[in-house]
C-alpha cells in the first residue's frame, strides 16, 4: 500500500447512505411534519404529499440499488490520504461563509462584500497590497452602484447607510 493512501469507505457507498437516510427522513419525518394535508382531498393521488412520497421511495430504491451494485466488490477502497492542510482550508472557507451570512444583515452587502473580498484575496494567494486594496474597495462599490443606480435595486447598506 502507498504511504499516502488509506482504506476509506467508497464514495458510492457514502452517497447511497445519504440517499437512503434522506429518503427515510422524508418519509418518516419531513413529509408528515412538513406537508400540510388539507381535509378535503378526494383522491389520494391529488394529495400534496403524494408526489414527494413517490420521489422519496424512488430515492431509497436508488440508494439500495447502489449498495447492491457495489456489494460484490466490497464497501471500501484505497484512497489518497486527505491532507490536514486541505481539511483546514475547507474549515476556513466554511467559517468565512457562515461569517458572511451572519454579518450581512448588520454590516450590509457592500461592507460585508468588501471585507470578504479582502480576506478571500489573501486566502487565495494574492500578495500585492495595492491590488488587494483596489479590488476589495472598487469592485463592491462598482457592483453596488450598478445595482442601485442603473438597475434601481435597493441594496441594504447596513453600517454604511449614512455614507452611501
Amino acid at each position: 500500500m502507498n504511504m499516502k493512501s488509506i482504506k476509506l469507505i467508497k464514495k458510492d457507498i457514502l452517497a447511497a447512505s445519504v440517499f437512503v437516510f434522506f429518503g427515510l427522513l422524508l418519509i418518516l419525518l419531513l413529509i408528515p411534519r412538513g406537508v400540510v394535508e388539507p381535509g378535503n382531498v378526494e383522491l389520494a393521488i391529488l394529495s400534496p404529499s403524494y408526489y414527494p412520497k413517490i420521489i422519496s421511495y424512488i430515492l431509497i430504491l436508488i440508494g439500495l440499488g447502489i449498495f447492491i451494485k457495489n456489494f460484490p466488490n466490497g464497501f471500501f477502497e484505497e484512497s489518497e490520504k486527505i491532507e490536514k492542510k486541505y481539511l483546514f482550508r475547507i474549515l476556513i472557507i466554511f467559517i468565512t461563509i457562515l461569517t458572511i451570512v451572519f454579518f450581512l444583515p448588520t454590516f450590509g452587502i457592500p461592507l460585508t462584500s468588501g471585507i470578504a473580498l479582502l480576506f478571500l484575496l489573501m486566502l487565495g494567494g494574492e500578495r500585492r497590497p495595492i491590488i488587494i486594496f483596489l479590488v476589495s474597495t472598487l469592485v463592491p462599490l462598482l457592483i453596488y452602484l450598478f445595482f442601485t443606480k442603473v438597475a434601481q435595486i435597493p441594496i441594504p447598506n447596513g453600517l454604511l447607510e449614512s455614507l452611501l
Partner: peptide, 20 residues
Amino acid sequence: IPHRILFPIILVLCIFGSYA
C-alpha cells in the same frame, strides 16, 4: 484574470445577484 482574483470577485457578484 488570475483565479485568485477572479473567484473572490465572482463570489461578491453572486452575493449581489442572489439578493437582487
